[in-house]
Design a binder for these strands. Structure first.
Lengths: 349, 349
DNA sequence: ATGAAAGCGCTAACAC
DNA sequence: GTGTTAGCGCTTTCAT
């Protein structure tokens, strides 16, 4: 008894097309890859044959032969983080325009996964690697930098790396944010930090210090340790609300919008007015900063552009247009003045 | 003059390992793929040789020979949408656990890109496809379903598809949301819709109608057309605030949290209290629903679980464990009662 | 338990 | 402009 449903025919190969078109496999290959080098008539016949049997080139074979994959490995710490989601979009747009595909390495909280992706690169399965994770992958006793493919890092800079990197100028952007508060008359300005070991936080903290130093040493830094999370904002608000009005900062620079929003929501719940009692400025420029109440002043990071810039750098290396060398490219941030940061209000004591 | 920096040596191949270990390439292959079939001593020698020259198998060659890629194509409408970012995380977790990699197809607003991804599947570059985009890809005159690889769809169901699909039960979930409002005493309940052609909106609208019908025909549907966006919520609030209190709905079911939040923010700005003047419940369960003021009642969609469920179904098909057949798997939603939905307040008229 | 050898499907010299 | 052919690096019979 025969199987009721015949197994699907094996996919057509280049030889099948060649036979049908009455030409050699080389001619088929040329007609597809470099059409202008075959005669018009032949080309037509080949393309007709391709259509007729529904031929699609086997990419594994092509990769093997051509020693390239037209794929880029993008390493993200957490794909569900909306910051990276936006960066990925910029990367995708740039890469797709040059016909590269995207393989995602989502690290999550699984450092043991790194080996897998190191191998991918080592094995030549990708033509380039984009590192958004702030460190060089290692695993199985080997480093990603041993792989024979170009690397570009973005978002979190890797100090000392000898390949191109892209970031926003966190220090200058933070300074601009604090200067905005200073311009509004504030002098007692607190900084709600990220994790203190984090490289982004260190740069933003420096920018905060820069701005304060510029108006004189009389106004010491006032750092509240946070971790970028909404909850850290909540805790900071509770701490500050407990202080008497006179000894409270009049403004707060938060290292992330999420903390700023947590701070504002909680502070208002505890009876502090924003910006009347305390002005707040965040960092990131998330969509929600414009939706909350009051709207959140913040520093916008152009996430898509950041991703696209990194991808463009990588494309330059992959195509051989550029030579790899250590460099740090900076993309511009924007200061978004909004309702949560207002002029200093002098209260009668 | 010699180049100061020698070109990197070509990556080691299996023959190099074989030579160093004093065995045949076949033995090396076996020592790596099926270690238990070679003698202990040989295996040791091979592995030592592998380490010594830093050998990594060429995956393109393996794929060509083995006719599989251990890669899955995941098609998303918009990678920067945080809904899909979460679903992707669930997919990644399930896939990585089975040693599959992820190739991302981000459609964006570029339907012309579809052909590229159809070809990827047709060419056997991936072992399976996960469709999160609500339709079957086409391009270059061919359909994705022509490809010899299993397909699973998720999020937006594709009617009539003959492969497995995963979704939340939008109709039942919407009904539960509206029943929550009804349980709080509300009867004049409006529905702020998504795009009316959208399949998700159609299901949620039905759930809304179901719930209303259950309490009697005396309470007609009241549908405000939206599009899932914050701005649509804003417009709806303006429209309702313009109405006299007595002829306004006392509760609103929004088809997305973003609309619900836009609605609440605007309504409050216009002097309407939430929930006292109007109760609001959303749909999605985004993080921000818990951060806004008041906290947003909503229907939580388990995005990660949805992704993982779809990936598991696909893994079953790819490994041949299951046979493909039309089926719709539903994952459970959760009703999150929160401050924005409160008991009906009877005002003296 | 191990080796020899035949391809997987394609591209790129090299010939004509 | 077109055909012939030699691999790309690996897995997997089939022998031994």
């Amino acid at each position: 008894m025969r199987s009721p449903r015949r197994p699907p025919p094996p996919p057509a190969k280049i030889a099948d097309v060649a036979r049908l078109a009455g030409v050699s496999v080389a001619t088929v290959s040329r007609a597809l890859a470099t059409p202008d080098v075959v005669s018009e008539a032949t080309r037509e016949r080949v393309l007709a044959a391709v259509r007729e049997i529904g031929y699609t080139p086997n990419i594994a074979a092509r990769n093997l032969r051509a020693r390239k994959s037209m794929m880029v490995l993008v390493v993200v710490p957490d794909i569900s983080n909306s910051f990276f989601a936006d960066v990925l979009r910029g990367i995708d747009e740039a890469l797709v325009a040059e016909n590269y595909g995207l393989i995602i390495a989502n690290l999550g909280q699984r450092p043991e996964q790194e080996a897998r992706y190191v191998n991918l690169a080592l094995a030549g399965q990708v033509d380039g690697v984009l590192l958004l994770c702030g460190h060089i992958l290692t695993g199985g006793g080997r480093k990603l930098t041993d792989a024979p493919v170009p690397i570009v890092a973005a978002c979190e800079i890797i100090p000392g790396a000898d390949f191109p990197q892209v970031e926003v100028d966190n220090r200058a952007a933070a300074r601009a944010a604090v200067e905005h508060l200073i311009g509004l008359g504030h002098r007692r300005i607190a900084y709600l930090s990220g994790p203190r070991a984090n490289i982004l936080d260190r740069a933003r903290a420096q920018g905060y210090a820069d701005a304060l130093a510029a108006v004189g040493p009389a106004d010491p830094a006032w750092i509240i340790e946070g971790d970028f999370s909404f909850h850290a904002g909540t805790k900071a608000a509770q701490a500050l609300a407990a202080l008497p009005a006179g000894s409270r900062p009049t403004a707060l620079f938060a290292a992330s919008d999420e903390m700023a929003i947590g701070f504002i929501k909680t502070a208002r719940g505890l009876g502090l007015a924003v910006p009347a009692d305390i002005s707040v400025i965040g960092f990131d420029g998330i969509d929600y900063a414009d939706f909350c109440e009051p709207t959140l002043a913040t520093v916008y990071q152009p996430r898509r552009i950041l991703g696209a810039a990194a991808a463009d750098l990588l494309i330059g290396l992959m195509t051989g247009r550029d030579k790899p060398h250590a460099q740090i490219k900076r993309v511009e941030t924007q200061l978004w003045a909004r309702a949560s940061a207002g002029p200093l209000v002098i209260r009668e004591g």
